[in-house]
Design a binder for these strands. Structure first.
Lengths: 199, 199
DNA sequence: AGAAAATTAGGACAGTTGCCCTAATCGTAC
DNA sequence: GTACGATTAGGGCAACTGTCCTAATTTTCT
């Protein structure tokens, strides 16, 4: 792996575990084993590193979604893969929260130019989930359903970080699975009545 | 208002709008109209300011919960007040997220000593909600139901910040109200089967 | 082997950080 | 009016920040 990518993935980890603003050039350099001065050769500004990290995360997310698509036979099974990242990544989530949600929030507070780029990570998940719901015959409310699921996974992440309660995660994951089952068997509702009844 | 409280409430606002770590002594001092040097007289360390902010937030939250308790006749109406903060504070939430959730996440990443103190803010809401659910006859799963509601409000906050979509907030708030209605009329489930079916 | 290019380390830069000290000013009580 | 404690402003501290430059080293190509 070339140095530029090494820096990007080190920054990726540090931004997640410590936060964007609090992570310094020196931290990343030390993590990669580079001298502080040489850093400038690869990245001119901190914003540039952030862009690289977001691009890396987008690529990794795409890869993960593609893998779920390949591994699973049915759309429902794919959505279940999404729900289960809460279990798979529970340790890191309890320590640092969701990488996407926490980055978006920090950039929003900083009013950083890249805040919309970071939000695109959410869109990636959202559109993928919506496609699965469409395949399940929920064309009318696929967007609402996918946003609802995304919302629940974010809420679980935040509370899991605050309380560090693994049984809470498992209980809510179970609830998400049951919710999904209920919405698979159900017929797609008529347009305009998407919201309160169905979600 | 004495200077100490002025400082605490200025820090409260800045910690919410910009983040804890990124806010400096100088920022707070300027906000209150104090000289940077004089600051040390009121607060010796930054941790001390954070403690004061958390204490202030706990007091304010208690006051708000008491007000909801006084204003509303029924427990269901009180829970509806909680759900509706998402609407009432939607502008700030779309800009900065939830004050409690974002602080807890930042302190978790910093591995700050006060991270459990900040999480106590969540507990305040959780116990209050659980008491309302108990009053509704849901003694068996009051904790799970209150955590579920808290989780949803956190998820909505996070996505609202990322997408800045007000209709999303309103749709999910409607869904939370419908969820509440369904769980008021329902009979309390037998113990041990709390999770997936009821939530 | 030698020239050219890529990559490196080290340090300088102005600005900011949390923290701390001191000397001056303020309001109040006697 | 004067003494005294509370509060203030100003500045200094070492450490760190993002950024930038230069000179040395390494790698690559002919």
């Amino acid at each position: 792996m070339d140095t530029r990518n090494q820096i990007a993935s080190a920054a990726d980890r540090l931004f997640y575990e410590r936060g964007y603003d609090v992570t310094s050039f020196a931290d990343i350099a030390e993590c990669v084993g580079l001298s502080r001065g040489n850093f400038y050769y690869h990245f001119k500004t901190k914003d540039e590193i952030l862009s690289a990290v977001i691009a890396l995360r987008i690529a990794n997310t795409r890869r993960m979604l593609d893998a779920w698509e390949a591994e699973s036979e049915t759309p429902a099974e794919r959505i279940r893969s999404f729900i289960n990242i809460l279990i798979v990544n529970r340790t890191k989530i309890m320590a640092y929260g969701c990488p996407v949600g926490s980055l978006c929030n920090e950039l929003a507070k900083l009013d950083h130019v890249a805040k919309t780029d970071a939000a695109a990570l959410f869109t990636l998940f959202q559109e993928w989930l919506a496609r699965q719901f469409c395949a399940l015959g929920r064309e009318t409310d696929a967007d609402a359903l996918s946003l609802h699921l995304l919302m629940r996974s974010q809420g679980v992440s935040t509370l899991a970080t605050a309380f560090r309660d693994e049984t809470f995660i498992r209980r809510e994951v179970d609830a998400m699975h049951t919710w999904l089952e209920a919405h698979i068997s159900e017929r797609s509702p008529p347009a305009q009545s998407v919201s309160s009844q169905t979600v």
